[in-house]
Design a protein around this nucleic acid. Structure first.
Length: 105
DNA sequence: CAGCTGACGCCAT
DNA sequence: TATGGCGCCAGCT
């Protein structure tokens, strides 16, 4: 299957209340430098509706989206979704990956 | 077929 | 902590 499908599978495998970084997913797939490709996979319409893309954040634990466009509104939306799952944001709108970040067993 | 873009990551300033 | 620049892979036009 394509990287695409693999990324979707991994993301959908993220348990509620936990988050994973693009780098972790990319590394899990065998492409430590393929973080960008991971983001591309989530951005694409090809992604299933039940894809919890909001559980995927960047290495800093921040919700990363396109600079412009819905940026602001979507970013807030994601934060709400994660908070609903038990994830707590700090004063910098960042998540403590040491607590919610999954490991690549 | 060739080039560009993009929900990123790390390093330097 | 913030900002800027370069490099990475995969998909799209």
């Amino acid at each position: 299957m394509s990287f695409f499908s693999d990324v979707h599978k991994v993301v959908m495998g993220i348990p509620s209340g936990s988050v994973m970084t693009y780098g972790q997913v990319a590394r899990f797939l065998g492409n430590p430098r393929g973080a960008r490709a991971v983001g591309y996979a989530l951005r694409s319409r090809n992604a299933p509706d039940n894809l919890p893309w909001h559980r995927v954040v960047n290495s800093k634990g921040e919700i990363s989206l396109r600079k412009t466009l819905q940026g602001d509104s979507s970013r807030t939306f994601q934060r709400v979704l994660l908070e609903s799952e038990g994830v707590v944001f700090d004063s910098y709108d960042k998540i403590d990956l040491t607590l919610y970040g999954l490991t690549i067993d």
